[in-house]
Amino acid sequence: MRSEQEANRAVEQYADTVHRLCMIHLKNYHDAEDIFQTVFLKYVLSSVVFESEEHEKAWFIRVTINACKDLSRSFFRNKTVPLDELLSEPAKLEPDYSMVLEAVLSLPEKYRDVVYLHYYEEYSAVEISRILKKNVNTIYTLLNRSKRLLKEKLGGDWLE
């Protein structure tokens, strides 16, 4: 089991990443909070030795996505809160960002992870394939399709 100092450091360092992934998948603040805490509890109880910070970050991303998927599959999971609730959480969104976020969150689930990891975390397709344990070509396909879908939603000029 990890120490309190390690736990606090991890919370400070990866809280935003974990929280964003939770919100992308769950669209519900309360569920996101539960998963957020569960992920850090797993970290504290885990005995995994990380080779580097990148390794540690990838571990958090992987564990968070899995935890979100587990909750999504759960029979007792509460009904998903409408997208509006999520968009209202970060109260002061600029109109452009709100539109982009709404477009990203309206994508099918399999595209959202790829878009987030590629455009925000700036992982390459190869790195994403390792994290998500998918074929690299699959990641390329998902990226192209998600780009096309966003273009349809946001308009052709948006890609420039």
Partner: peptide
């Protein structure tokens, strides 16, 4: 495009 998506995700922060 990257900036806009990045900016949009930046607005989501853990309090």
């Amino acid at each position: 495009m990257n900036d806009k998506i990045k900016g949009a995700f930046d607005t989501i922060k853990s309090g």
